[in-house]
């Protein structure tokens, strides 16, 4: 049972994030919602990458007596997560700077009032 808790957390985080994006009106809260979805996806990748009893994939620090990395963890999910975190930071910075400029032009952070482009 305990091993399913991260997956439940992932689903919960994705849904909380989507709820924030769809139903919250404040632009900052929408940005927070996207960040929560992103954290959920990152948690998912990290959970996938966990291997019980595995060792870090560093060839020079292998335990004595082992030759081929049988217990070594292939670090692909971790690499994916790192890349995704870096991209997430870029997206977050860009979104917040856009929100700042939008506040200057529109004078509000309400997404219902940010509707000059429609139809």
């Amino acid at each position: 049972m305990i091993e399913y808790i991260p997956y439940i957390a992932v689903v919960a985080m994705v849904f909380i994030g989507l709820y924030a994006v769809v139903f919250r009106r404040n632009l900052i809260k929408i940005v927070i919602g996207i960040t929560i979805i992103e954290s959920g996806v990152n948690l998912f990748l990290i959970t996938l990458g966990y291997r019980g009893g595995g060792i870090a994939p560093i060839y020079t620090s292998l335990p004595a007596g082992t030759t081929y990395p049988e217990e070594m963890v292939l670090p692909v999910p971790q690499a994916l997560t790192l890349t995704s975190i870096v991209i997430g930071v870029a997206v977050l910075a860009l979104m917040l700077s856009l929100v700042m400029h939008i506040y200057r032009k529109y004078g509000t952070l309400n997404v219902r009032k940010m509707r000059r482009l429609k139809e």
């Binding site: 769809v22 929408i30 997404v111």
Partner: peptide
């Protein structure tokens, strides 16, 4: 249908 609200855009996607 075209409300111009970004929340609705995501809602259509869902």
């Amino acid at each position: 249908m075209h409300t111009g609200d970004v929340g609705d855009y995501v809602l259509w996607f869902i």
